[in-house]
Design a protein around this nucleic acid. Structure first.
Lengths: 169, 169, 169, 169
DNA sequence: TTTT
DNA sequence: TTTT
């Protein structure tokens, strides 16, 4: 049974990185993909597609990409259902990403805030490692080492209420 | 912005064919796609993916495929939201199929009820046109002429409460 | 950089299973995919797409599928070039399959030769294990155990002139 | 029969725009897609995938994208064979693009030569229409109007030796 | 409950 | 609120 999804679009907000009780990283994010046609009012609409990614690539995504970043996603559609807070069954459909490609971080052309990894200007960045520059690579998150980061959210790695049952492997 | 989905799986129920007030055919269906791995209990789970298809291919799907039929779907992910019956906003994600491939109708190997198009045995079918035989083609619904059918559901073509706003073109 | 291919079509011949000097299984096969439109002569043409698959799934494919079998392929496009026998550089494009789905073996509906695994009638097969029946599963080759087989070609596993350089991992 | 390809990569050279004797535009181009893994020498290799696109999107591609531009491709694999100049049959595999997405033109971050559409600096471009800026859109070529251009190659539209038999519709 |  |  085949189940394959490929998306290219922009993050509607910063990815949300969490850790399962067992310490497995998982990031949720939403990709806005503009439709290739206009509606009857002549407007271009978009689809807002919920995605999840696990482990190392989850951390890379959270480190390098932020609201507005353009990414590519290769994955599969997953459906789940769970008890809602009102006791009703909630059905949800999301894309489980096998890999994510960093196509362009928000601000990469304007010298703005390049992701949440840094508050210094991109222009004066001396690190030599600038994953947020789309023109340098378009690399995939799976192969990237996890860089040192002073992002307290990520470093804390505090477990949240996430069952390992969601783990696809 | 890229948005591409390919699925192969089985219909969880007969496709539901409707017509917009303007007479445009639209079919809703759900595809069960078995996951390629087992969960922690060692069971194989499936994803149940809601799909829509418009116009002629919608009619072909409803005519030839039924619960249990294996199909291929080529399409894109669409998200919508609407006012639920309880006044709350409902978000939904579905696949809009560009084309559907008929891979095998339920019962095609066992001589059972081949779709809803006929109540005579497949063995004695003299029509010469047997779309439900996966070994004869694997043809795509887009190219197929709509055959005469005494299926009252399809012929009635009664308009239902469906806005043309949903039309993707 | 994204590179994703999904195919559903039929094997134009039996898969060719080989082993690298290191004993790694690799199978070459060609999938015929009918085009969804007719040419100017009103004929339906097909694309004949060369594919490779490695390791266990290669053995499964060779064991269960044969000329005429319908399969699904999920993979990526690979290009290579090598010195031809006439000293000229040969460029080739093929699909490297990550996984293959067995949709229907040739003969599964006609009771003919079901793959190369058996020369007895499908009707009288008592083995209880009939992977070539598309109606029983549509399972993926990755998860299947390699069954006992008296196929001399497969068992010999004789090394051929295949470099491990071709190995994608 | 399903046949779907999605690529994201960079043009290895400027697209080659031609016209059939009937005046139908067609562009050939090659996309380099870096592989997501290293070979045994620890080097990252790439696949160089030949593509074709027809009609309006062919002209848009040639107008806006050039060597080094990053694009997304949604299409299908096509195989053809023809008589080579040495009388031998040549088999070729290429991707027929249904649509192309402009992700980033070469030079869009460095202020270099932005495509072949202009020889003035990107900085001082007053046109208000800057398709080569990936940060402004990521629009698809299908929807774009063909802009006025003084590119002699494109304007001449001289017919070349291209059979309309290649036309996919 | 959305990106450019 | 699921297919084989």
């Amino acid at each position: 049974m085949l189940n394959r999804v490929v998306l290219v679009g922009r993050l509607t907000k910063d990815p949300e990185l969490r850790y399962t009780p067992n310490g497995v990283a998982v990031a949720n994010f939403t990709v806005a993909v503009n439709r290739p046609f206009s509606n009857q009012q002549g407007e271009r609409e978009a689809d807002f597609i919920n995605c999840v990614i696990w482990r190392r690539p989850a951390e890379n995504l959270a480190n390098y990409m932020s609201k507005g970043s353009m990414i590519g996603v290769d994955g599969r559609i997953q459906t789940r259902n769970f008890e809602g807070q009102d006791g009703k069954r909630v059905f949800m459909t999301e894309v489980v990403a096998d890999s994510v490609q960093f196509l362009e971080s928000r601000g990469s052309n304007q010298g703005g805030q390049p992701g949440r990894t840094s508050n210094q200007s991109q222009q004066t960045n001396q690190s030599g490692f600038q994953p947020q520059q789309s023109n340098q690579s378009g690399f995939q998150s799976q192969q990237d080492a996890k860089p040192k980061s002073d992002n307290p959210f990520e470093d804390s790695g505090e477990p949240v209420d996430l069952s390992d049952d969601d783990l696809p492997f």
